[in-house]
């Protein structure tokens, strides 16, 4: 589902964030991306979301070479990808409902469909009944969950998350990881960048460890 083949990423500043990364994440797999700060975790996720392009090497998503996706084809590509951001990236001039509905509106879902899916997604993250609230009135953890609801509402094939538990307390963090596990159980391929090793050590999922832009350890299946 997500396949990296000898991927390099050098930023215009000259900094090489990824140096020859290769791995393969099968459809329906769940993996954590770990490693110290500055190792290149966010960079790797940005390559998947086509926010950045690799300098060298190939990134294949669902057997599609992302290098062949032109600028104009990026929107439909992103519509099939769920992304959770560390800083939530919610729109603060809109209600929780409108935030979660955004990708559905973009995809052209009918009003009834939007209504149904938004409520289902908010139900999954435990925020049903908060539709009309402004994101700013929610706690950080709740905002993070709104971000997750938005990412899963269109039922993407792939879900990627960058530090989704960044500054949450351990209980909340565990809850959110359980949430991702549940999505994974219904077939969504999940890749989560985190440096909260304590949180994930008890979890059975595969771990990809990046150090200085290189894959230092891979606990898992899939192979490369």
């Amino acid at each position: 589902m997500i396949r990296f083949e000898n991927v390099f990423k050098r930023y215009p500043s000259g900094r090489e964030a990824l140096s020859g990364v290769s791995f393969n994440l099968e459809r329906g797999e769940f993996a954590f991306l770990t490693g110290p700060s500055g190792a290149g975790k966010s960079t790797l996720l940005r390559l998947i979301a086509l926010i950045e392009r690799p300098t060298r090497g190939t990134v294949l998503i669902n057997n599609q070479n992302t290098a062949r996706i032109s600028r104009g084809r990026i929107p439909p590509f992103r519509q099939r990808l769920g992304v959770v951001f560390q800083d939530h990236k919610l729109l603060h001039d809109r209600s929780v409902f409108d935030n979660v509905a955004l990708p559905l509106v973009i995809a052209g879902a009918s009003r009834r469909e939007i209504e149904r899916r938004v409520r289902a997604a908010l139900d999954q993250v435990g925020l049903l009944g908060r539709e009309s609230h402004a994101p700013i009135t929610l706690s950080t953890g709740e905002q993070q969950r709104v971000g997750i609801a938005r990412a899963v509402a269109p039922r993407p094939d792939v879900l990627i998350a960058d530090e989704p538990t960044g500054n949450l307390d351990p209980d909340l963090s565990r809850e959110i990881m359980e949430l991702f596990t549940r999505f994974n159980e219904v077939g969504v391929t999940v890749l989560i960048a985190t440096h909260d090793l304590e949180l994930i050590e008890h979890l059975p999922h595969r771990q990809l460890k990046l150090v200085a832009g290189q894959l230092a350890a891979d606990s898992g299946r899939g192979g490369s």
Binding site: A49, F77, R78, K89, L91, P103, A107
Partner: peptide, 16 residues
């Protein structure tokens, strides 16, 4: 610009 960026991130086309 923040809103535009978010809409682009969740797959909004240029037209949208």
């Amino acid at each position: 610009s923040v809103e535009i960026e978010v809409v682009k991130l969740v797959g909004g086309s240029d037209g949208f």
